[in-house]
Computed example of a mutant assay.
Amino acid sequence: MCGFALTGTVVGLPPDQAGAVSAPAEGEVGTSSEECAPGPAARVSDPEAAVTDGGELTPRQASEYDRQFREAILPLRGQEIQPPRAVPVVVHVISAEDGRGNVPAARIREQIKVLNTAYRGGYAAEAADTGFSFHLSEVTRTVDDTWFTRFDEYRDTIRAELRQGDAGTLNVYTADLGSGLLGYSTFPQDYESAPEQDGVVIAHDTLPGGGREGFDLGHTGTHEVGHWLGLFHTFQNGCSAPGDYVDDTPYEREAASGCPEGRDSCPRRAGDDPVTNFMNYSDDGCMNQFTEGQATRIAEHWAAFRS
């Protein structure tokens, strides 16, 4: 099945998506005292129970990322923007000495296939074809018990030592991230200040066939690459404007879990919750689409920060 094609987009910022976070709608709760330090955006297996460091951006952090994006895209306004021909992917497999986490080549190739199907709109008739594609350029393998089981503690060192390529090279790291954390990613805006840290981290058992219950079809990779390309969670800012800064993803008060049907957590806003969107927290089997607005946003972020 194919989706709506995005062959090119002319840069123009929506007038209703200002860089500052607007006031919450009546009866809705907003926040105003968050720090603006950048942090990775994560995907967790249980949004109600799992606690991660920097897993979700505060409204101010998201606003600051969007301000940087609007500033960077301004010189390209009026130009037609195309997605890249293909994004090179370097996968860094970190495993334990007893073989845990030593992801076989076949599962890595399947993960790349999942990314290509997802980003070309192949999982749902209504899904957008973002125009993005990915090709595997190299796989590195590191056997280190400490790095494998305590990746987050050593992540700065690991990424600085292993990362390859430039801003347009997707570096993916696989390791044991613990029971609640599925993966996390940097944003394109982070690259200039810390290029050696740029990339996506995913739990080794979330790759296709990895055995992580509910999360082993490869869509943790799909989700985290979405962040790497500039997308926020669909539930960013809850029911308050500007939501996730994408016009065609309905507002959502909080992350979805499992695959709820007919969920409408922002009844004063149009549309049911986007539980099938790849930028939600739904189970892998529930996720099947990006929207045309998300496709436009990642193409613009690529032009602004990664091309």
Rank of each mutant, 00 (worst) to 15 (best):
E126K: 11
G221I: 03
D283S: 14
G293H: 09
E126P: 03
M1K: 09
V114M: 01
F132W: 14
L207H: 05
H223S: 08
A96S: 11
G122L: 02
R100I: 01
A255V: 05
G168S: 13
G121N: 01
V172H: 03
V87T: 12
I202P: 07
T130D: 01
G8C: 04
A49M: 14
Y173C: 08
L115Y: 04
V11D: 14
V201F: 03
S33Q: 14
P47C: 03
T157F: 12
R85T: 13
H233T: 10
A175S: 09
V225P: 13
Q294P: 06
L177F: 02
P15S: 15
H219I: 00
E224P: 07
Y123I: 01
T146A: 15
V10P: 00
E192P: 04
D205R: 08
H223A: 07
L181N: 11
P104Q: 11
H204P: 00
Q61C: 08
A106R: 15
E213H: 07
T130F: 05
A50P: 03
T249E: 06
V225E: 11
F134H: 05
A303G: 10
P88D: 12
W147C: 06
F215C: 02
V246R: 06
D16K: 09
S133F: 02
T291G: 01
R263L: 14
G19P: 11
D156K: 13
N288P: 00
R77G: 11
G243P: 08
P40Y: 00
L182R: 04
G39E: 11
D53N: 11
V93S: 00
Q189H: 08
R85S: 13
S22Q: 13
A20V: 10
Y251F: 15
R212D: 05
P83Y: 05
G243I: 04
I298Y: 06
R263G: 02
Y191Q: 09
P267I: 04
P38Y: 09
D216G: 07
R60C: 13
G165F: 10
R100W: 00
A42G: 06
T169D: 06
G183C: 01
Y251Q: 10
P75M: 07
P14E: 12
Y281L: 07
Q197Y: 01
D272M: 06
T174Q: 06
L231W: 12
T234H: 02
R107C: 02
E196A: 14
T222K: 03
N116R: 08
D129M: 01
L207W: 03
D284P: 00
G199Q: 03
I108N: 09
T149N: 15
T206C: 05
S22K: 13
G27Y: 01
E261W: 03
T220Q: 02
D198P: 09
Y251E: 10
D284Y: 01
L162K: 11
T130R: 07
